[in-house]
């Protein structure tokens, strides 16, 4: 394979990986936009989503689409429960306390699920067997098509919810200024809860798609994608929804190029290097505006 076609193949791989990062990054960015919390447990919510999808397919014998919906609903509820139990009591606590609680929740989800579903990786059933497309000599396999399609649908849906519904308007208002939004009669707690629900449901979709794509899931699978999705969110400008989508795709493509052309062992380092460069040179992210620090 010559350089050009290798490049395009890596780009296709990068976009499918990046779509999953984007789905997870959306949850990070929405939660951060509203309560300024880096939800370290978000990567583990994605892992739970993958397991719910796995059990929906293997135990309840569902097809891929019902399993995806079940996983999104169950995981969305889990996200809301986590918020209610772990983060809501700390709404007015120092940021560091909430951050540490998030680390605690992350450990709890990882090792709790390790206890319930055993630490050995599971083989995700091959539920989506379609022929890939071959366009001008480049193959896009069935799983990649599925990832593109579902990510696109979910992003359109999310944009609709955030831009055109009442709850979306409330979310934007709370993220802009929580106190003023409350004065206007918006129930901030409900909005935060819904935000966690939507973010977790998107992460769950990412989890199921990764299960379909890589055929293997394990209880610690959420750690790295969780961190990278955070990098994606920062890259796009944290708190900005289109930023998370773009950041996820860019990160996915860069990772694919690094593992395709340099070495796959430096893949993770590349993501963190991007993070540090972004933080140093444009901390507000690609889509962000610079804000002045006020005393």
């Amino acid at each position: 394979m010559d350089f050009g076609s290798h490049l395009i193949q890596q780009l296709i791989n990068g976009i499918s990986l990046g779509s999953v990062y984007a789905l997870i990054a959306l949850g990070y960015t929405m939660v951060y936009g509203i309560i300024k919390l880096i939800n370290f447990a978000h990567g583990d919510i994605y892992m739970v989503g993958a397991y719910v999808g796995f059990f929906a397919i293997t135990v309840a014998h569902m097809g891929i689409f019902p399993a995806l919906i079940v996983s999104m609903v169950v995981t969305g509820l889990l996200g809301m429960v986590v918020e209610r139990l772990a983060y809501k009591p700390l709404r007015h606590a120092p940021r560091i306390s909430v951050l540490i609680t998030a680390i605690g929740v992350s450990f709890f989800l990882e090792y709790g699920s390790m206890y319930f579903v055993s630490p050995t990786p599971r083989t995700f059933p091959r539920v989506f067997e379609t022929e890939g497309l071959t366009i001008a000599g480049f193959t896009v396999n069935g799983q990649q098509l599925l990832i593109f399609a579902i990510t696109l649908v979910l992003m359109v849906l999310l944009t609709y919810i955030v831009q055109y519904t009442k709850i979306g308007k409330a979310m934007r208002a709370v993220s802009f200024d929580t106190e003023t939004a409350q004065l206007m009669g918006i129930d901030a707690n409900r909005v935060i809860s819904v935000t966690f629900g939507i973010g977790s449901a998107l992460a769950a979709a990412g989890g199921v798609l990764v299960g379909v794509y890589y055929n293997s899931i394990d209880p610690l699978m959420g750690i790295m994608p969780g961190l990278k999705a955070f990098v994606a969110a920062v890259l796009g400008g944290i708190g900005i929804i289109p930023g998370a989508m773009a950041g996820g795709l860019i990160l996915g493509i860069i990772e694919a190029l690094v593992s395709g052309f340099i070495s796959s062992t430096f893949r993770d380092a590349a993501a963190f290097a991007i993070l540090i460069l972004v933080l140093l040179f444009k901390p507000s992210g690609l889509f962000g505006k610079n804000t002045q620090e006020k005393v």
Binding site: A86, I100, T101, I103, G104, V105, F107, F108, G112, Y115
Partner: peptide, 8 residues
């Protein structure tokens, strides 16, 4: 698990 709960 004990770690995590203790931390929270």
């Amino acid at each position: 698990i004990i770690y995590a709960l203790a931390l929270i």
